[in-house]
């Protein structure tokens, strides 16, 4: 016999309420376990003293990189359900839940703004939307971003943050790898710079397409970057993985990144990089 009965099930705090930062809230770093006031944490761009970079949203990246104002491009694209996919849950329901929870239309947001007065288009993936998975909408928005860059002669930056292709669109998702890579050849031909910025995590079909195709590939410190996920690799080799396997530092050491940039230096680095492409 229970002593108490719960009247309402689950947690009833709404997402938008959660986002509001109130005095007296604390952030506990999952890396060094230090507890710091959330205001300080936000002031540090959500980077802990120990160097841990917490995942941040596209909007936060836009705020960090752009000089204030920016315009969102093709904001109204939404996933359809071309295969009427259903596993334990219907894909349409998953989409609806994600859209309500994140207030986003899909796993990528594209915007045009200025970085120290230089034009830049940023396509930034939203990990909070079904694991940042790449389906038709992600492919199409990148494709349109490339068209926009071609028309206006503006450099492109893609911020990857994704578990890979979206299973619920199966082969459609797979073909987005070919689609985005094929479109990037046009950008390359026009000699428009493409900066690929890999953040935690970048794996699967995203790594195996546009994320690795930058004129320069750069990453945030400590991000998980790989093709197969660490669990799969571990199962394949039947051994524990070496420390630091598939981190940004590991990928840099093996020659697949140009450099690692801390979040506090991100804007200045991008600005300088753009200038160097131009001058």
């Amino acid at each position: 016999m229970k002593w108490f009965n719960r009247l309402k099930k689950g947690i009833t705090t709404e997402t938008k309420e959660k986002k509001e930062i109130k005095e007296g809230l604390w952030f506990k770093c999952p890396s060094c376990k230090k507890v710091i006031p959330i205001n300080d944490h936000v002031k540090n761009l959500k980077v802990c003293d120990c160097g841990y970079h917490q995942k941040i949203s596209s909007k936060e990246y836009f705020d960090i990189i752009f000089d204030g104002k920016y315009t969102e491009l093709s904001p109204n694209l939404k996933s359809s359900d071309p295969l009427t996919f259903s596993d334990t849950k219907k894909y349409t329901d998953r989409l609806k839940t994600s859209q309500e929870k994140t207030k986003l239309n899909d796993a990528i947001t594209v915007a045009h703004g200025k970085v120290n007065k230089q034009d830049l288009v940023i396509a930034s993936m939203n990990f909070e939307f079904i694991g940042g998975s790449m389906g038709s909408v992600v492919g199409e928005k990148i494709s349109r971003a490339i068209d926009y860059c071609l028309e206006n002669n503006i450099p492109l930056m893609i911020i990857s943050k994704s578990g890979g292709a979206r299973m619920m669109e199966a082969a459609y998702s797979l073909m987005q790898m070919a689609k985005t890579s094929a479109k990037l050849t046009l950008l390359a031909e026009a000699k428009i710079p493409y900066i690929s910025f890999l953040t935690d995590p970048t794996t699967g079909g995203v790594t195996a397409s546009y994320a690795m195709l930058g004129d320069i590939n750069i990453a945030e410190p400590g991000a998980l970057i790989g093709f197969a996920g660490p669990r799969v690799v571990k199962e394949t080799i039947g051994k524990d993985l070496p420390e630091g396997f598939q981190t940004s530092e590991f990928v840099l050491e093996h020659g697949f990144l140009d450099y690692i940039v801390e979040r506090k230096n991100l804007k200045e680095t991008i600005a300088l990089q753009l200038k160097m492409f131009k001058n």
Binding site: L77, K78, S79, E140, Y172, M175, Q176, A178
Partner: peptide
């Protein structure tokens, strides 16, 4: 051909 692959809704 590959650029045309994908199904989505535009509102």
């Amino acid at each position: 051909k590959f650029a045309n692959m994908g199904e989505f809704i535009e509102e």
